[in-house]
Design a binder for these strands. Structure first.
Lengths: 133, 133
DNA sequence: CTGGATCCACTGTGATACTG
DNA sequence: CAGTATCACAGTGGATCCAG
């Protein structure tokens, strides 16, 4: 659902409106699977398309291709075709894409922290007010 | 567009699946207007609902209320009603919401930088290959 | 192996209007 | 002033199929 933001921002840019700093950045990795793609490619190096498919089994073939295309269009990913009987495509982060990693890592850390707290809350709650009879 | 991610994450949490660190964080401020709301409340303090409306004129009354409700539910915003002939509601960031500011500021900085580059590219392009006859 | 097209169901959003 | 319901429409994503 997050592509609406990307649409909005792209439209603003077309109109010469460059007053959307944070929305622009958000548009880079919002949209399903995008943040995962950047994260994996950032930490593990390069991947073939079919490898990414295995990495994100929940993502449909179509969406994966679509999101990868957008990431390439935004300058975050590099795309290299390897000739052969079955053409293979390698994706990797560009330096620009790599520059997003600190932000994504910060998001990872924040989520990690927050989820720990939520788990503790849950346990505390369970102990203090058990649902079972 | 981006609420799909929020839906997904909330579902995962219900299922006891806490393996979605970055998606969880992303879910906090993806969704239209959310990042703007956090940003404004973080930098300016508290706002009445109607002030937020004026701050984000493009956002519809309904969506604003909906997103604010989600942000409160996620523990990022605090909501206080002021009694009176016309009930007014004040929104402000919770400490948890405030802890997101470094990430959002980083996104602002990244977008600022990137947009400058894009503008330069555009100018260079115009000079090198002018569209006009 | 990749990429794209089509069909279809569902979600997100805006406009409008109603309630307290 | 603030919150919500209803309707209508566009965007998104999954399944499937076809093409290079």
């Amino acid at each position: 659902m997050t592509d609406l933001i990307r649409q909005d921002v792209l439209k603003k840019l077309e109109d010469g409106d460059y007053s959307c700093r944070k929305e622009f950045t958000l548009a880079m990795f919002s949209g399903k699977w995008k943040i995962n793609l950047i994260y994996h490619l950032g930490h593990d190096g390069a991947y073939y398309f079919y490898e990414l498919q295995r990495l994100l089994p929940q993502a449909s073939h179509k969406e994966l291709a679509k999101k990868l295309k957008e990431l390439v269009a935004d300058g975050l990913l590099d795309r290299q075709e390897e000739a052969g009987p079955r053409t293979k495509t390698v994706y990797s982060l560009t330096p620009l894409g790599r520059s997003l990693l600190p932000i994504i890592d910060a998001m990872y850390a924040w989520g990690d922290q927050r989820l720990s707290e939520l788990q503790l809350d849950k346990i505390t709650f369970s102990l203090g007010d058990p649902k079972k009879s």
